[in-house]
């Protein structure tokens, strides 16, 4: 496991992905900083403009921006690469000849992808907090419910939100893992995973398919707003956990069924 993590995080590509994610809050903060003075007086601040009042909000705003596409993209790259990447390098056969054990390899690969999900969400939130703190005033935070919390607690809330966003991506990771066992072309698995994340969000936006929405893995992706109320509304948090666990179970089982019997010919 530690070896898997070190291979993942010693890779330049992983760092490039995380840097790209860190660039999002920076872009958001800089753009807002340069343009916010132009907002007409009398109008309430727009969503993004709220960050001018408190730098700690940058991380959350950046997360809102990156959840629909950027985060799933990076997760798709990592999850799609899990098995297919090893297969295309040929290292898969040497891992299996050790023997690493097929089930063990699958579990370790999935855990590493999960670790990346959390790292990715944390990167966005932390980079946002740092950039925000350096560009905008920092002070007690007004929540969506109107209550005010201290700076310390707001940091805690930010971490909670990052955790929520990371957990939201676990279902997608499981799908990526399964697709990755189907092919020896990592790029194909990556693309398929990313496309599925987009499809899921499109389905989620079609009101005619309302019955389907609670079953889509992307349904609760933006649900972290409820963690920014006082008291915290845990409802979506729990539903999200259950939904992601369901996806992990189903696609984990599919990946297992596929990988255990697969002929490794690469």
């Amino acid at each position: 496991m530690s070896s898997e993590l070190s291979v993942l995080f010693r890779r330049r590509r992983t760092w490039a992905l995380l840097l790209a994610l860190a660039a999002i809050p920076i872009l958001v903060a800089v753009a807002v900083r340069l343009s916010s003075s132009r907002s007409a007086p009398g109008e309430g601040p727009s969503f993004l403009d709220r960050i001018t009042q408190n730098g700690l909000f940058v991380g959350i705003a950046a997360l809102v921006v990156s959840v629909p596409l950027f985060l799933p993209m990076t997760v798709g790259v990592v999850a799609g690469d899990t098995i297919a990447g090893e297969a295309s390098l040929g290292t898969l056969r040497y891992l299996l000849l050790r023997p690493a054990g097929r089930v063990r390899l699958l579990v370790v690969k999935y855990l590493a992808a999960g670790a990346f999900c959390l790292a990715a969400a944390l990167t966005v939130v932390l980079a946002g907090a740092i950039v925000g703190a350096s560009l905008f005033p920092v002070g007690p935070v007004t929540l969506l419910s109107g209550d005010t919390i201290s700076v310390g607690e707001s940091v805690l809330r930010s971490l909670l939100v990052a955790g929520y966003a990371g957990i939201s991506l676990l279902g997608l990771s499981a799908i990526g893992l399964f697709i990755s066992t189907l092919t020896e072309v990592p790029v194909g698995a990556m693309a398929a995973t990313i496309v599925l994340s987009v499809v899921s969000q499109i389905l989620d936006s079609l009101t005619q398919l309302g019955w389907l929405h609670p079953w889509l893995f992307s349904h609760y992706w933006l649900g972290f707003a409820d963690l920014l109320r006082q008291p915290i509304a845990w409802g979506p948090f729990v539903s999200n956990m259950l939904l992601q666990a369901g996806y992990i179970a189903v696609f984990g089982a599919l990946a297992y069924a596929r990988f255990v019997t697969k002929d490794v010919l690469s």
Binding site: S3, V7, R98
Partner: peptide, 22 residues
């Protein structure tokens, strides 16, 4: 089996460490 295969972004020694720890 069928030629050597390694992680190109790791050093030779790091590759052996990685495969051995599997």
């Amino acid at each position: 089996v069928e030629g050597p295969a390694f992680y190109p972004f790791l050093s030779g020694a790091a590759n052996l460490h990685r495969l051995d720890s599997a």
